[in-house]
């Protein structure tokens, strides 16, 4: 577990103001630690240039699932206990059905597990709640307070947040 760090947090009550604030903070070269929103906002994801590799993981799982399921079917029906009935081939085309379904099954399951592992979330995980309204109708910009920051830097951040429409500015220890 990484340690929590002190953050300057600007709370907003409007999506447009939030996006505007992100832009002006970035133009001043201030590094935004994170943004918390009650619903997904694509503008925020684009502005922070966030990317995810989950689709690649899913593709990998899919390929693995196809190979693994076929290998299992082949091994059981051809190698381990070959049953001859009606002259039908043992390695048959109808394996496709089970392979198809199991690919979906394994890929879905592994993708979800990956999602939770990457997110470090799971049943009973205690949330590090920054502000109560962030799952309702408010938005937050988190800026990490670094050791090298001068008093001027800090007041600049505060002023900029206020100018761009933050309704509240707090300092709080937050886990990254």
């Amino acid at each position: 577990m990484s340690k929590s760090t002190l953050n300057i947090i600007g709370i907003f009550d409007d999506e447009d103001k939030l996006l505007g604030s992100i832009k002006s903070l970035q133009s001043k070269g201030i590094l935004i630690g994170d943004v918390i929103t009650p619903y997904p906002i694509h503008g925020v994801i684009e502005a922070l240039k966030l990317k995810t590799r989950i689709p690649y993981a899913a593709l990998f799982y899919g390929v693995f699932a196809v190979v693994a399921t076929f290998a299992f079917l082949y091994w059981t029906s051809v190698v381990n206990y070959p049953l001859r009935f009606g002259g039908k081939p043992q390695n048959t085309l109808s394996f496709v059905v089970v392979i198809f379904i199991m690919t979906i099954n394994i890929t879905a399951l592994f993708t979800i597990v990956t999602f939770f592992l990457r997110e470090n979330k799971g049943p009973g995980k205690v949330a590090d709640i920054v502000h109560k309204e962030l799952t309702n109708d408010s938005y937050a910009i988190l800026i990490q307070k670094k050791e090298g920051m001068t008093v001027d830097d800090l007041s600049n951040i505060n002023i900029l947040l206020k100018e761009t429409g933050a309704i509240e500015i707090v300092q709080k220890e937050v886990k990254p």
Partner: peptide, 18 residues
Amino acid sequence: LSFGWVGRAKSWLRFETA
């Protein structure tokens, strides 16, 4: 039950992708 959900931008991206 909420698995420690906070609503970070990165979480939303992964959430929507997944």
